[in-house]
C-alpha cells in the first residue's frame, strides 16, 4: 500500500478525480487503502466519525440495527461513490452502520486531519463540502423516491 497507489486511486475516483493535484497529494498523506472482507463494518452507529470513505471497488450497505428485526439495509453505495459525511458535521458521530456486502476496497481518509486541513485551507473546504453536498442531495433525492414506493400495487379500483 504505497503512497503512489493511493494517489492513483484518488485520481481515478469520481469524487476526487478533477481535484487539484496538490490537494490530491495532500490527501494522499492522510489516507490509506483498506480492503474489507464481506460482512465487516466500515463504520458503526454511535462511534466517532473519524474517517471518510471513497469506495474504489465493491458494494457497501447503509444499515440500521433494529431490535427483533436485526440489521436492516436501507441503501447501497458502490464503486465510485463515497460513504459517510457525518465526519464533516459536529458532533462527528456516525448515525448508521455501513457494511461491506462483498469484498470492498476503499480509500480511507483520516477525518480529524482532513478537518484540520479544511479549516486551514478555505478553498479546499469549499471544494470538498460542495462535492459532499451534491452527494448528500443525490442520496436524499433517491431516498425520497424510495419512499414513494413506486412499484407498489395500485389501489383497489371501485367498480365503475
Amino acid at each position: 500500500m504505497s503512497k503512489a497507489e493511493i494517489l492513483e486511486a484518488l485520481r481515478q475516483h469520481p469524487f476526487t478525480h478533477d481535484m487539484d493535484e496538490a490537494w490530491k497529494e495532500s490527501l494522499a498523506e492522510i489516507a490509506r487503502l483498506q480492503t474489507y472482507v464481506p460482512d465487516t463494518l466500515l463504520l458503526r452507529e454511535g462511534r466517532a466519525a473519524d474517517a471518510f470513505f471513497l469506495i474504489v471497488d465493491g458494494l457497501v450497505a447503509i444499515e440500521m440495527f433494529v431490535p427483533e428485526r436485526g440489521s436492516l439495509r436501507l441503501q447501497t453505495a458502490s464503486a465510485g461513490e463515497i460513504v459517510g459525511w457525518s465526519w464533516a458535521l459536529p458532533p462527528y458521530r456516525w448515525e448508521f452502520d455501513a457494511r461491506a456486502l462483498v469484498e470492498t476496497t476503499a480509500v480511507v481518509l483520516d477525518a480529524a486531519q482532513l478537518r484540520a486541513r479544511m479549516s486551514q485551507d478555505c478553498a479546499l473546504a469549499a471544494w470538498i463540502l460542495s462535492r459532499l453536498l451534491t452527494v448528500v442531495a443525490g442520496r436524499l433525492k433517491a431516498t425520497r423516491l424510495q419512499l414513494l414506493d413506486l412499484y407498489a400495487p395500485p389501489p383497489e379500483r371501485r367498480p365503475a
Binding site: 469520481p14 458494494l59 450497505a61 436485526g70 439495509r73 436501507l74 441503501q75 465510485g80 433517491a142 424510495q146
Partner: peptide
C-alpha cells in the same frame, strides 16, 4: 431493489442510483 430482504446482497436504491456505475 427499493427494499432488500435478509438474503439480498445486491444494490438497494432506486434504479437511477445505478447510473453513476454505468457512466464509468
Amino acid at each position: 431493489v427499493d427494499r432488500g430482504d435478509e438474503l439480498w446482497r445486491g444494490h438497494i436504491g432506486v434504479v437511477t442510483t445505478l447510473l453513476p456505475l454505468v457512466e464509468r
